[in-house]
Nucleic acid binder design. Sequence first.
DNA 1: GTATTTTTATACCGAATCGCACAATAATAA
DNA 2: TTATTATTGTGCGATTCGGTATAAAAATAC
Lengths: 207, 207
Amino acid sequence: MSRGRGRPRKFDETEVRQAIMRCFWAKGYAATTLDDLAKATGLVRPSLYGAFGGKEDMFLAAMDDFAARTRAYLVGKVPADAPLDVVLRAVFSAMLDLYLTEDGGRGCLVFSTAGAEAPAHPQIREKLLEKLNQSDDQFRRLLERHAPSAAPQNLETAAGLAAAALHSMGLRARSGVARSTLEEFAESAANSIAALVDCAGARRTAD
Amino acid sequence: MSRGRGRPRKFDETEVRQAIMRCFWAKGYAATTLDDLAKATGLVRPSLYGAFGGKEDMFLAAMDDFAARTRAYLVGKVPADAPLDVVLRAVFSAMLDLYLTEDGGRGCLVFSTAGAEAPAHPQIREKLLEKLNQSDDQFRRLLERHAPSAAPQNLETAAGLAAAALHSMGLRARSGVARSTLEEFAESAANSIAALVDCAGARRTAD
DNA sequence: GTATTTTTATACCGAATCGCACAATAATAA
DNA sequence: TTATTATTGTGCGATTCGGTATAAAAATAC
């Protein structure tokens, strides 16, 4: 499993990427310095630069790594066939576990920290937009699977609201809202959105 | 209208505060430098420091100023007695106008940029939490006024969802989502949330 | 063994960072 | 006029910023 010719790396790439991700997660993009990253990874700055590029490159990779971790968190926690409200509660509950990691709420690296940099960093803005679309799509597919009889327009709306609830949960977690409060919010939001879908609550879809 | 003894200021305090607010709005807290603020306001750094304190003081003030601007944006745009869906659409539409200000979407200074700094800056985190609670409260009062017959538990949930929709709209606007897409999202969210309240869509409020 | 290649480690770069002395300035109070 | 007070503008100052030049180190290829 050698990399070929030269001197071998003495670090594990995926471990270092996780450390970089945690660092950006804690402090956001702008407030994280290359020294922070060097200290967190145990590498010196030139090694970081050689392996992962500049600061912005590392943050973009961290956004992808966080999204991957998010997906990993959901695997096995979403029941295959269950009523929609049960499924939504499971998803929100798992995401809260992630957002309330360790010492105090950190929210979502992507949704709760990348927004600040969007206007000044087109690549970050672009990837944030991509992640937003993915969260919409994932909820839409989830709703399609668990409520196939619902009207497409209803599904679209409910998916958008579910994603919105998720974005808000990240922000609230990062601002220090208590876990119990967040769990209440998550449960009532899940119930309401599920009710929306198959009760056909939305009226006047296109006036 | 003199300030007493010494040399008079040659700047208008509220104008300068607005300039500071716009600056933080565009770049977020960490990426904004005192030189940016000095250039945007036309003041030199020592004058800024003397009048408004350090960078964090200025950002905290900017959060309040943005919240005040938000309230001002809503005045006169929310019909006094109208169906709930109409009122919610008016609120969301006004907020979208604010979030899509000028050159490209900037979202919300508070909800879309302050989250990144929360873990490292307790005062910012505290004020963000305060603004989050205020947005929940404002929606709760709005719903109480326009749907007095609804169950309190329903109102609480719907208010949280409305606030969540607002937080998400800020994030989406800042990430570059097109205005028309955002308007569709706002309209369908408003309709759904209104339907939730008086259709008593939510089931199993406390299991 | 010798050459080649890649990573590490030290040290450094110019620029930018926040904050603050310090003196000059412009008003009021006596 | 003279003293007092507050603001302004210049400029420093120690630190930190992201990034890189350079050479030592550690592996493989020949």
